[in-house]
């Protein structure tokens, strides 16, 4: 139900580097789960609105007032790599 090519596409979107074995496993398992999820098609939801939030809340705002910044050393305390004040990452392309 799910092809290896689809698994590879989804892995690319998810930034996951999967082994061939993992690809086969996920293809099979995701296929089974999606097949199970297929039972939702039994329900006619044509006129049913989606529920993205259960709480009937709207318009939650904050005022435009400045709060505390993190001190630089705290902001960078978990950096895997840094150069001066910057986080450092390998080349992008």
């Amino acid at each position: 139900m799910i092809t290896i090519a689809e698994v590879e596409h989804v892995a690319l979107l998810s930034r996951l580097d999967l082994s061939d074995e993992e690809k086969r496993m996920y293809a099979e398992q995701l296929g089974a789960i999606l097949e199970y999820a297929g039972m939702l098609d039994e329900l006619d939801t044509g006129n049913i609105p989606p529920t993205a939030h259960v709480l009937p809340l709207n318009n939650v705002f904050r005022e435009d007032r400045e709060g505390e910044h993190l001190p630089l050393e705290k902001a960078m305390q978990n950096a895997p790599d840094r150069e001066g004040n910057f986080f450092k990452v390998p080349r992008i392309v």
Binding site: F86, F87, K88, R91, I92
Partner: peptide
Amino acid sequence: HQGSTGVASYSLVD
């Protein structure tokens, strides 16, 4: 982007 022009060898994030 840091490094020689064209291809950067690494980048810094602010």
